[in-house]
Design a protein around this nucleic acid. Structure first.
Lengths: 191, 191
DNA sequence: CACCAAACGGAGACAGTCCCCGCTTACCGT
DNA sequence: ACGGTAAGCGGGGACTGTCTCCGTTTGGTG
C-alpha cells in the first residue's frame, strides 16, 4: 500500500541525502534549522525538498524514525530485564534524555503526544504510544503504578517533566531527580 | 535609578499605545505575533518599537507585567485564606491556567524559570520566584510539602505539568488532575 | 521663540518559507 | 540501441517577518 511503483533511482538518492543532511542540520541548529539550507547542503533544489517532505514535521519525523524505533525496541528489552515498575521508570528516563539532548526531538515527541487526530497517525506517535502503553499496563498489574492513569497521561507528564528539566539546563542527574519527584509526588514528606 | 529624566510626552504616548496593542496582538496571535504589525497597528514606525523594546521578550514582559504582579499579589491573598498546602496548590493551579490560557504567557513564564543569569533579572522572574518561595517555605513548615525540594524546582515542575496539560488540549479539569498527579505521585496506588 | 537632543518612522538589507512551472532524465517498450 | 513520456528536478521569485540605519520632526527648555 505504500508503493504504487518503486521510486526512481535519482529520487531515492535525493531522498536519502536529504534525510542524512537533515539529521545533521537539526542536530546542529535545532528544530528550526533552515530548510532551504538543508536542501542546498544536500545539493538539491528546495522544490525537491518540499516535494519529498511537505512540512518541517514530516522531515523531522523521517530524520529521526530510526531513533524512535530504537526507543520502541528498548522498551521491550527493559521489560525483560527489569521489574515492571523499574522498566517503566528507566524507559521514561531514556525518553527524557533523548527529548533534551537530541536537538529537534522535543518538538517531534511533543507533537506525538498531542491530543487531536492528525498527529496521532504519525509513525513516531504510534511507536511511542505503543511502547508506553505496554510498560504502563505491566507496571499497573504489578502494583507499581497507580491504576487510574492512562498511558498517554504518563507520557505527557514525562514530557512535561523533561521540559522542566531542560529549563533548568539539566544534566542527567537532574532528569533523574525530576522524574523521581514525579513518581513519588511532591506532597510526600521529605525523603 | 530608572529615570535620568522623565520621558518625553510623545515617547510616553507611543510606549503606552505599543503596550496596549501588543497585549491584544499576543492574545490574538500567540507569542509570535508580528512585531512590525504591532508597530503598524499602534501607528508608529518599527524603529520606534525596537527602540522601546529591543527584543520580543522585552515587549512580552512589559505587556504582561500587570498580570504577573496580580499573580504575585494573589499568592499572599491565598496564603491568608487557606492552609499552606492548599494555598500553594491553588496558586500553582492559577499559574498553570494562566500559562495555558493567556497566549504568550507560556514563553514569558518559561524564560522566567530558566537557569542562567540573564533571565533571572527580569521583573517577571523576580515576582514569580518570590511568590513561589513564600508559599513553598510555608507549606514545608506545615509539613504539607516534602522538605527536600527547592521553590524553583516546584515552579519548574508546575510549568512542565502545565505544558503537559496543554498538549492534552486541556481544560481546567485536566489541569487540576495533572497537578494533583504531580502532588500525589504516580507511584502511589490507585485512588 | 530658537535651539537641540530626544524621539520618530519607514526604506531597505537580510533571512526564511514555500510554490510554480519549464527543463531534464530514468525507465520502459520496441 | 533508441526514442517517448511521465516522474522528478531545481531555482527563480513572491511573500512574510526581523531589525538597523539615518535623515527628519518635535517637545521641552533657557
Amino acid at each position: 500500500m505504500t508503493q504504487g511503483r518503486p521510486m526512481r533511482a535519482d529520487a531515492r538518492r535525493n531522498y536519502e541525502r536529504l534525510l542524512k543532511v537533515a539529521a545533521e542540520a537539526f542536530a546542529e541548529h535545532g528544530e528550526n534549522a533552515s530548510l532551504d539550507d538543508i536542501a542546498k547542503r544536500a545539493g538539491v533544489g528546495s522544490g525537491t525538498l518540499y516535494r519529498h517532505f511537505p512540512t518541517r514535521q514530516a522531515l523531522l519525523e523521517a530524520a529521526y524514525v530510526d531513533r524512535i524505533e530504537a526507543l520502541g525496541a528498548r522498551a521491550d528489552e527493559l521489560a525483560k530485564e527489569l521489574a515492571p515498575g523499574e522498566a517503566l521508570a528507566e524507559w521514561l528516563y531514556e525518553l527524557a534524555v533523548g527529548t533534551i539532548q537530541v536537538r529537534g526531538m522535543k518538538a517531534l515527541l511533543g507533537s506525538a503526544v498531542t491530543d487531536g487526530g492528525a498527529a496521532a497517525l504519525t509513525v513516531c506517535g504510534a511507536v511511542v504510544k505503543g511502547a508506553v502503553a505496554r510498560l504502563v499496563v505491566a507496571a499497573q498489574e504489578a502494583g507499581a503504578l497507580r491504576g487510574d492513569v492512562e498511558p498517554i497521561e504518563v507520557l505527557r507528564l514525562a514530557h512535561g517533566v523533561a521540559s522542566a528539566a531542560e529549563l533548568a539546563g539539566a544534566g542527567e542527574k537532574e532528569i533523574r531527580r525530576y522524574l523521581s519527584l514525579l513518581g513519588e509526588g511532591l506532597g510526600a514528606v521529605g525523603r
